[in-house]
Design a protein around this nucleic acid. Structure first.
Lengths: 166, 166
DNA sequence: ATTATGGTTCTGCAAATTGAGAACTAAATT
DNA sequence: AATTTAGTTCTCAATTTGCAGAACCATAAT
């Protein structure tokens, strides 16, 4: 049987590998919503880290990436307010962590696409007012109606949520 | 004063220019949701066209693009079911038009990102169960709760809509 | 059977994106 | 004052993407 140390070491390695897999998997999801691979991986890494705040070098080491790539990613993520950094007195380092409130704002902001589509489709309809193809126009009207009603429902839901949970 | 012909010609040119501007503007919106510029412009052009069905060459001519670019765009858009083509007997040409129902399905499918984020955040939390940083975890719990409740609300809204409007 | 039409697929290139490495900067430590 | 630390910004190389042009294919017309 292994010594205790060997066992805990193995477990630690296991966990690291698992974390790598999760970072990769989650990274792809963030990529699909407009992050670069590195941005996605940095964000995923911070989400999964214990403690949730990590210094520059830890991020770099885990992701085996260049300083510049990490720096650019952190700048991007802090600029969009989904990551922030904290400091501890007597320590020069910045500790980066996910700004969950900012992330929340970011995801709700993405829902504005619904309003955008409603407006765009209404613009289309305004331009099609002379059209003889009423069936097509009616479908577009439905599209407008759906998206604008959904937009109202979304705004209400978010407002209600903020009132009772924030 | 201009002759009638000169006037109508001018008006037609004006309209064409305006259409070009709108196609460009809308194209950008579709680009932002994952289309290439050309895909976005083809879709916008079809939305704004009278009649709503247009043949291959009309699209190519308006967008001043290559056959291959148009063909690829149309393949992409028909594959994702936001465009379809119709034919008329005694005419070899395909007439492409926006499939509004398909577009609707496409936009509602995009809302599944809410469920994805809820699941992803729950996965994060499952991995953070040993964490000492309760405040961070609680914020993540809020994120899960918001997104899963919103997801339920969205599904209800869509179901309700379909029941009363489709 | 040959040619024309309508459209697709292949090939290659120009532009955009991503990230590495080096040079740089600001602040803290010696 | 010189060096170290922590991080940023610049430059450039490697991919990746987006589209044009040409070759190609299938059907219809001659």
């Amino acid at each position: 049987m292994n010594t205790e140390n060997e066992e805990t070491e193995l477990i630690a390695k296991e966990k690291l590998k698992q974390k790598e897999t999760m970072v990769e998997k989650m990274g792809v999801i963030f990529e699909n919503s407009g992050f670069t691979p590195m941005h996605g991986r940095v964000f995923a890494f911070l989400l999964l880290s214990e403690p949730p705040y990590q210094d520059f070098y830890s991020i770099q080491e885990f992701l085996k990436a260049s300083k510049s790539a990490i720096s650019t990613a952190l700048k991007f993520l802090t600029d969009m307010k989904v990551v922030q950094y904290i400091t501890f007195s007597g320590d020069r380092k910045r500790y980066f962590q996910v700004d969950v409130e900012g992330w929340f704002e970011q995801t709700t902001a993405q829902l504005e696409i619904v309003e955008t589509i409603a407006e765009l489709t209404q613009d289309v309809l305004d331009n099609r007012s002379e059209s003889k193809h009423l069936e097509f126009n009616e479908k577009l009207e439905q599209m407008v109606k759906f998206n604008s009603q959904l937009n109202i429902a979304l705004k209400q839901f978010i407002q209600e949520w903020k009132k009772t949970n924030m």
